[in-house]
Amino acid sequence: MPMYNLNINGKQHKAEVSDDTPLLWVLRDHLGLLGTKYACGIATCGACTVHLNGEAIRSCVLPVSSVGNAQVTTIEGLSANGEHPVQKAWDEVDVPQCGYCQAGQIMTAAAFLKKNPNPSDKEIVEAMNSNICRCGTYHRIKDAVKIAAKNMK
């Protein structure tokens, strides 16, 4: 099996896995980075969202072989201690119920706001519509994205 050298959260990680292994399972099963969640496995829910060179991607369908030298950021690497403006906004609004989808929601929001620091409500909904929250915390997610946008200025 090939050995992959992955740049994750600013550090090099080695993983010996088959080339079709989705990044999600490399993170979870091989590297112990468990903040990225499995929920659907077919890129429909966003729970597994991580950043690849700053872009939000679905790690459950991204083969490790296509990661190459790209910089991967997971929820563990978004900030050192949860001080990213998106994480702080999530706390201010008290978003979660079960919390399982929230790492993916936060990663989606963080990548979105980096590209679009002044989003309209409609743009927020379009960006966040890709992530499912079964507890129905969408109102608070929307509010938190707005607060994060304000605080990132």
């Binding site: 903040g35 008290d94 790492a103």
Partner: peptide, 15 residues
């Protein structure tokens, strides 16, 4: 606010 918020937001919560 939820007592485990920051653990949830930093991916540390164990499910």
């Amino acid at each position: 606010k939820g007592v485990d918020n920051m653990e949830v937001f930093t991916g540390k919560t164990q499910y």
